[in-house]
Structure formats: structure tokens, C-alpha cells
Computed example of a mutant assay.
Amino acid sequence: MATKKKRSPSTGTDTWVVISADSAISTSKKDSRDPVIVRLKNPSTGLVSLYMFAGGDTRVFEMKAFKEDHHSWFIGQTVHRDGRLLYVTPVDPLYLVLPYLIKAEKEGKFQPVQQMVMDEDFPACTRLLNCLGEHASLAHIAEEKEVGNQKFHRYSQEKTMEWLKKKVDKTVKVLKNSNISVGGGVKSTTYIRVKKESDVSDEEYLRYAHGLISEYLSEDLSRDLLKHLQLPDVSSPKKVEPPNKKRKLSDKPVEAAEDYTQFNGRDFARKPPKKLTAVQKSLAKVDRTGMKTMSCFFSPKPKTEGK
């Protein structure tokens, strides 16, 4: 008697499906260490999120996830229940360093950066210091003093605003060159342009870019940047934030919890379509031309006037 082939058991979250930049997994002859996933403080929310260091801690990447209900992956001969698709993209380490410099600035004195970027809850934050190279220099966000052979820094609001403004301007340039629709000319539910590109104002581009950059800033810093850009505050968040369609894909970091890859998927909840019974399906095919509804036979007859 033939025996049934047993299905391979599904695994937990030991395997992920990841899309990443080449720089996230490439190694050099000087440093062949594998990338490392760590927990760091999210600069926008202050909560725990997952990040990845690569290139001997010289590059840092953020991890974001795309998730919908009832998704899984078939990998080889196994089924993986975690159907999320993770995106690993580079992030400027200065965004992650900013909260520590702002906190240390309250003391009002110059300090070594090693003394400022310390956190008992997130000990891996010290790895960020290795990422502060030429393009992520502290000179963009802090004043600098050198005493002997040691450098001391102090957070500078003025320098930070100018640095963030350059970030916004570069983002606006990319949006225009990539022909991406922004502002009120986009239907958020369908991400379809309803305005001509010439009808989109520079303010709409600035607001859209500000919304993207603000995903890496605290609420107070985002508000200060809005003032620095000389943009009036608006009450409706729809005019500031990117369309919901774009947000659905990947706008939230992977939050680290007990499963180490928790992701909030409330926005993806959907109600299943209502199924028709066999009788309802057959009635739907009947030609109802000239037929009266059942309520017509029970409605009161119109009164006739007496002669």
C-alpha cells in the first residue's frame, strides 16, 4: 500500500526574504565580517527598531517591512509562515546620532563624542561612531573644538537646520527628476496623478520632501525644520504627509520585540468579500425584465374617488 508523502514542517522566523542594496552584503579584503543586525533607538519615535551594520561597522542600514495578511513563503521544500518582505536600505548615521547630541547639549558644554553617544538600553549605538566618516561628519550638526589631539563637540541647532535643508532640497530635486507626483495632485488611495506636473507648486514639493525627511526626526525637530523652510504650519496632515499608497508599501521600521522582527500590520486588515449562496447565484442569472417585486403585491391599493 502506497504511503502518503509527508509535507515538510513549516519553520518559524529563522529565515527571512530580504531585498537589500549590494553595499549591505558586500565585503572587502580588509574586512570580511558578515553584516550584523542590532537594536537601536529609532530617532523619530524613540522606540526600539532593527538596523544592520556592514562593512566593518562603516555603513548602517535601516530595516523596513512590507506585510499583508495571510502571506507566507515557499522556500525549497519548506513553508515559512513569516510572509513579510524586508527591505534593507542605507541610512545616514547622523540621523541616529542626533538624539544623543541634542540630549547632551542640555549640559551646555563641549564633550567627546564617545561620551555623548552612549546608551545603556542600546549599547550597540557606539557602533555608529565608526560610520562617522567624511560624508557623515559631525561638523554638519555640531560645533567642534580641538584641544591637543582630542576633539570636542557640541550640538548646533543652526548647523543642523542648514544640513536638513540641504537634505530637503536634494529630495525635491530627486522627486522632480523622477517625475513623482506629490501634494494635492495625487489621490492617496490610488496614487494617480490628477494634476499636470506644471500645476504642482514648489511648496507642495517642499512639504512632501519635509514629510519624508521627518520620518527620521523627532516631532520637535520636524517642527523646527518646517519653520526653517519658511513653510506655514497646516492643520491637515494629508497636506504634509506622503500619499497613503506609498506609506502602505514601506514606511515603518521593523520594530524589535520578542520575535525580533515585529511589524505593525493594522493598516493592512481587510474584510473578506461576502460569498453568494448557490440560490443567490442562480437568481442573479434570471432575466427580470417586466417582473414586479414582491412588495408590489402587498402595497395598499390607491383609493378611488366616489361619483
Results as ranks from 00 to 15, higher is better:
residue 49 S to M: 12
residue 62 E to S: 06
residue 230 Q to Y: 13
residue 88 V to D: 02
residue 218 S to E: 04
residue 95 Y to T: 04
residue 187 K to H: 09
residue 94 L to S: 06
residue 91 V to T: 13
residue 224 D to G: 05
residue 10 S to G: 06
residue 68 E to N: 12
residue 112 P to D: 10
residue 218 S to V: 00
residue 301 K to M: 13
residue 242 P to I: 01
residue 80 H to Q: 05
residue 260 Y to P: 01
residue 47 L to K: 14
residue 171 T to R: 12
residue 117 V to G: 01
residue 280 Q to R: 13
residue 146 E to A: 10
residue 21 A to H: 14
residue 216 Y to K: 08
residue 169 D to A: 09
residue 24 A to S: 04
residue 230 Q to M: 13
residue 168 V to S: 03
residue 245 K to R: 07
residue 92 D to T: 01
residue 70 H to M: 09
residue 7 R to S: 13
residue 63 M to L: 14
residue 123 P to R: 11
residue 122 F to E: 08
residue 83 G to K: 06
residue 227 K to A: 13
residue 271 K to P: 10
residue 39 R to T: 15
residue 298 F to I: 15
residue 283 L to K: 13
residue 249 L to S: 06
residue 40 L to W: 03
residue 134 E to M: 13
residue 81 R to Q: 13
residue 88 V to I: 15
residue 270 R to C: 06
residue 12 G to I: 02
residue 254 V to H: 01
residue 3 T to A: 12
residue 105 E to I: 05
residue 250 S to G: 14
residue 77 Q to S: 14
residue 259 D to G: 11
residue 174 V to I: 09
residue 119 D to N: 15
residue 72 S to T: 12
residue 23 S to W: 00
residue 63 M to W: 01
residue 273 P to W: 11
residue 264 N to S: 14
residue 50 L to Y: 03
residue 221 L to S: 01
residue 212 L to T: 02
residue 162 E to I: 01
residue 84 R to M: 11
residue 216 Y to L: 12
residue 149 N to C: 03
residue 217 L to W: 05
residue 284 A to I: 07
residue 258 E to H: 11
residue 75 I to K: 03
residue 195 K to G: 06
residue 192 I to S: 05
residue 204 E to G: 03
residue 126 T to C: 07
residue 290 G to F: 04
residue 31 D to Q: 05
residue 260 Y to V: 11
residue 63 M to Y: 02
residue 182 V to T: 06
residue 249 L to D: 07
residue 191 Y to S: 03
residue 100 Y to R: 01
residue 296 C to I: 09
residue 155 Y to M: 06
residue 60 V to T: 07
residue 239 K to C: 03
residue 104 A to K: 00
residue 87 Y to T: 05
